[in-house]
Amino acid sequence: RRRVRAILPYTKVPDTDEISFLKGDMFIVHNELEDGWMWVTNLRTDEQGLIVEDLVEEVG
């Protein structure tokens, strides 16, 4: 499975499927959606939700 790491922190918009995260958080990518969004699991918090790919980098 594809893994990505947050390069910046992010605070979710209330009442959306987004998740908040810290710089350095690792995610497993489940689905890549339109307009650069990804459905992921945050490995630190075990939370699932949407993040935008501009805020993460690939992990080898």
Score class of each variant (00 low, 15 high):
60 G>C: 15
39 W>H: 06
2 R>K: 11
23 K>V: 11
4 V>Q: 02
49 G>S: 00
31 N>T: 14
46 D>F: 15
50 L>E: 05
14 P>F: 08
59 V>R: 05
30 H>I: 11
43 L>S: 06
40 V>M: 00
50 L>W: 14
50 L>R: 15
58 E>D: 13
31 N>C: 15
31 N>R: 08
17 D>F: 11
35 D>A: 11
55 L>P: 01
48 Q>E: 07
43 L>N: 05
21 F>C: 07
24 G>E: 05
35 D>L: 11
6 A>V: 01
28 I>M: 09
47 E>W: 03
5 R>I: 11
54 D>K: 10
8 L>M: 11
40 V>Y: 00
55 L>R: 08
13 V>G: 10
8 L>Y: 14
60 G>R: 10
44 R>D: 04
4 V>R: 04
57 E>K: 06
16 T>H: 03
3 R>Y: 13
19 I>K: 00
54 D>C: 14
18 E>V: 05
1 R>M: 15
12 K>W: 03
50 L>C: 14
29 V>P: 01
7 I>K: 12
41 T>P: 01
5 R>C: 10
4 V>M: 08
22 L>H: 09
11 T>L: 10
15 D>I: 04
34 E>I: 14
59 V>L: 12
15 D>C: 15
12 K>Y: 03
40 V>P: 00
5 R>S: 06
23 K>T: 12
19 I>V: 08
17 D>M: 12
56 V>C: 09
13 V>M: 10
32 E>I: 14
4 V>C: 09
58 E>I: 08
16 T>G: 05
45 T>G: 03
18 E>T: 07
23 K>R: 11
10 Y>L: 04
33 L>S: 11
48 Q>F: 08
38 M>P: 00
8 L>T: 09
6 A>G: 04
15 D>S: 09
56 V>R: 01
57 E>F: 05
10 Y>F: 05
13 V>A: 12
31 N>D: 13
32 E>S: 12
20 S>G: 06
33 L>P: 10
24 G>F: 06
56 V>G: 01
34 E>H: 15
43 L>F: 05
17 D>I: 08
52 V>H: 12
9 P>V: 05
42 N>L: 12
25 D>S: 01
50 L>P: 04
22 L>M: 11
55 L>S: 08
1 R>C: 15
